[in-house]
Write a protein that binds this DNA or RNA. Structure first.
Length: 566
DNA sequence: GGCCGAGGCGCC
DNA sequence: AAAGGGCGCCTCGGCC
């Protein structure tokens, strides 16, 4: 039996399946099956299912208790391939890919929808491209053409790795959505009560917030709404203090009795509105928080979640993430992921040598370039990655450049390419749109017209030899993109490898946040899971970046409560 | 009523 | 003169 099969939902509720040959074309008859789940269950030897959209098919398989080994998501691959080819804006649906292949009119993509609170994974939306059926033979044609397009990529093998890894990521995301994050509503309520005090009838502010608001008003000598920035700025002005904003870092530099209760209010207010009682009501069911993870969320390849703010859970609220009885959470955090990735992609000898050890990377960098000052070393590295151009950043960057010239040159070159509107790619070939990181050309930025090129068209003072602010924003974006995006490439491989190991266990991947993964497993599996994470990290490092000395160590904690991991 | 940008802040 | 990247999501206020 061929290892690759293609699958397409058919009109009338059934599904078509067929075996694929090495060229990606049909290698057998198209078989009509009445039931999707049975069609997959009866073919356990299939090692990779090719389908149009993981989100369309896989939740239904999971709901029936079925998992697949691998998949290939045609529409996700289409997005990555279009980007690699410098055609970011073009419609990405399988129907659009087919139309391009055949030279017909290309249908536009549907507008994206967001999930309602607590909604299960979405399937079909009437009128969207998702509901326009693409016959199986046509889908296979698109797939075969995509295989040929991989061959024309800058690095074909890396591109194949990228689309395969992102498809694996989509399986992981669907499985996480299915599993949910263990969540104790009782603990959450206890934390809220401890921080915010009693709730008053009518849905107004809880006791602690009301008290802090009174303290703020008392400090100003008049009624002030601490949740309204304009009101706060006016109150400070009346007290003879000019502030440009009410951001915490700006407030904290002021000497005024309102500052302490104001900062405390803003912190608790945030928890109340974003992760308070109504959040609990909306997002937690039967002991699980179910956000919708999406493995294809951002330009850089980082994931996003839809609903529930799952990637922004405040540290104090993590006390509510509690393993089931007899189970544990294995919380694994990649150590200094971004500089290690920078070492791997730049091949800077000094940085690779430092990143070849599991010990604290920033400490080692500081000993080579910053007289042992770890904080300065960390700021310098992050400044290089984020494009910091002021203050101590410049001085630190110079020190970094002396000792790690290739690493700094790598991100500098990415920034230059971004400013000049050239394509910038991650290590595996994910490609940044040429205009990303700035507003659309021709629109306005901060009320000032933005020019369409680097000729200083933003109306501000033009310095010869330097790019416009719009172009510089693109440069910063591109500089960060190569590191953040290549890190995302690596984490996809990591998740894919970890998923394969966990497939033989009861363990479930339940959470992923850029450089951190949580596995929920029976107590007796924790040792195996910890080992699996280490092995997956090594494997992902070799597969993604090839032969380098760079290592990717993890800090792992086996806990019953997420908050105890830090 | 809904939509959108700004201000702000949570996480990485 | 200086200007740090990516997200989601809350509020308000302006707008249709």
């Amino acid at each position: 039996m061929a290892d690759r099969w293609v699958l397409a939902p058919a009109e009338g509720g059934g599904v078509d399946v067929a075996a694929l040959g090495p060229d990606g074309l049909l290698a057998g008859p198209v078989l009509r099956e009445a039931d999707l789940v049975r069609a997959v269950r009866e073919r356990p030897d299939v090692t990779r299912w090719v389908w149009r959209s993981t989100a369309e098919v896989y939740p239904r398989l999971l709901a029936a208790g079925l998992r697949v080994e691998r998949c290939y998501d045609v529409e996700d691959a289409e997005t990555l391939l279009l980007g690699h080819e410098g055609r970011h804006g073009e419609p990405r649906s399988a129907a659009a890919a087919l139309a391009r292949l055949r030279g017909g009119p290309v249908p536009p993509d549907p507008a994206h929808r967001s999930a309602a609170p607590g909604a299960q994974s979405s399937l079909f939306e009437p009128g969207s491209v998702q509901s326009v059926p693409v016959p199986l033979a046509d889908l296979a044609e698109v797939y075969a053409e995509q295989q040929r397009r991989h061959g024309r990529a800058e690095h074909p093998e890396r591109m194949r790795l990228l689309t395969g890894a992102e498809s694996a990521g989509m399986l992981v995301a669907a499985e996480m959505n299915h599993a949910g994050l263990p969540w104790s509503a009782d603990v959450h309520r206890a934390v809220l009560h401890e921080l915010l005090g009693e709730r008053y009838a009518g849905g107004g502010e809880p006791r602690r917030l009301a008290e802090l608001a009174d303290e703020v008003s008392a400090a100003f000598g008049r009624r002030v709404r601490p949740d309204l920035p304009a009101d706060v700025i006016k109150a400070f002005a009346q007290a003879g203090i000019r502030v440009k904003s009410t951001r915490r870092w700006e407030l904290q530099s002021l000497d005024h009795p309102a500052v302490r209760p104001l900062v405390e209010y803003k912190k608790l207010y945030r928890i109340w509105v974003a992760h308070g009682w109504s959040w609990l009501q909306d997002w937690v069911r039967e002991g699980r928080f179910r956000p919708e993870f999406m493995a294809h969320g951002t330009v850089t390849g980082r994931w996003v979640t839809n609903g529930g703010g799952a990637l922004q859970i405040p540290k104090v609220i993590r006390r509510a993430v509690v393993a089931d009885p007899g189970w544990r959470l294995v919380v694994a955090d990649a150590d200094q992921m971004e500089p290690r990735v920078l070492a791997a992609i730049s091949r800077d000898p000094g940085l690779m040598e430092v990143a070849g050890r599991a010990s604290d990377l920033y400490q080692a960098v500081s000993e080579r370039a910053f007289s042992g000052d770890r904080e300065q070393a960390k700021l310098a590295v992050l400044g290089a990655v984020y494009g910091q151009t002021s203050g101590d950043g410049l001085k630190n960057l110079a020190a970094l450049r002396r000792r790690f010239p290739r690493a700094v040159a790598y991100v500098d070159e990415a920034a230059r390419a971004g400013e000049e509107g050239r394509l910038v790619r991650t290590w595996l070939g994910r490609t940044c749109p040429p205009a990303a990181g700035a507003g659309d050309e021709g629109t306005e930025e901060a009320g000032i017209p933005v020019g369409g090129d680097e000729e200083g068209g933003d109306g501000r003072q033009w310095v010869p030899g330097y790019a416009s602010s719009n172009a510089r924003a693109r440069g910063r974006f591109a500089r960060n993109f190569v590191v953040q995006g290549s890190a995302a490439d690596w984490t996809l491989l990591l998740l894919a490898a970890l998923r394969r190991t966990c497939a033989g266990l009861a363990a479930e991947l339940v959470f992923f946040q850029h450089d951190e993964v949580i596995v929920h497993c029976p107590e007796e599996e924790t040792e195996a899971v910890v080992a699996a994470i280490r092995e997956a990290a090594d494997l992902a490092g070799r597969l993604t970046f090839g032969d380098t000395p760079v290592r990717f160590p993890f800090t792992t904690a086996v806990v019953e409560c997420y908050a105890d991991a830090k």
